[in-house]
Design a protein around this nucleic acid. Structure first.
Lengths: 76, 76
DNA sequence: CTATATTTGTGCGTATGTATG
DNA sequence: ACATACATACGCACAAATATA
């Protein structure tokens, strides 16, 4: 799902992909989002890049992170 | 603390500022130095530039870096 | 209560691409 | 051509929080 040759930064590509899944309803409010470890495995991206993508969604209010537990689609 | 218009390179400016804090005793031997992330936030410099400043202090023997942990004022 | 596994958080080291003076 | 600087990205290691066996 990630195009390494795109001028769009990889963390933005991943954030966009997750945002689409949320807005499409694939991921409903309250649902856990894939763990950072899974996202690293599935995308081939570095952990730092994955975290940066997730942090974008947190700043947008689409995702809530609970340390030690995981990330969830925000209720609202 | 960093003057972008100074002819002195920014990494040297930051290194000098940290060196002053160490020699003044604000940072004692064994004390952790501010993380690179913090220095990036506080100075507005890029990570690579901050890292370069810290590396100067390491080469001078004023700072010791422990990978995965952080940087500390050298004991001696 | 202890041990282990999972997940997020933090931090360093390094490399590459791009822009500027 | 060169030095400086920023942004992006990967890899690795350790710490903290939480849950489970």
């Amino acid at each position: 799902v990630i195009d390494p040759y795109s001028p769009v930064p990889r963390h933005r590509q991943l954030a966009a992909a997750l945002r689409d899944q949320i807005e499409r309803g694939d991921l409903a409010p309250g649902d856990p989002i894939p763990s950072q470890t899974r996202l690293v495995q599935e995308t081939g991206l570095a952990k730092a890049t994955v975290q940066r993508a997730v942090r974008l969604l947190v700043e947008e209010g689409l995702v809530v992170i609970v340390p030690g537990i995981g990330g969830f689609v925000a209720r609202r």
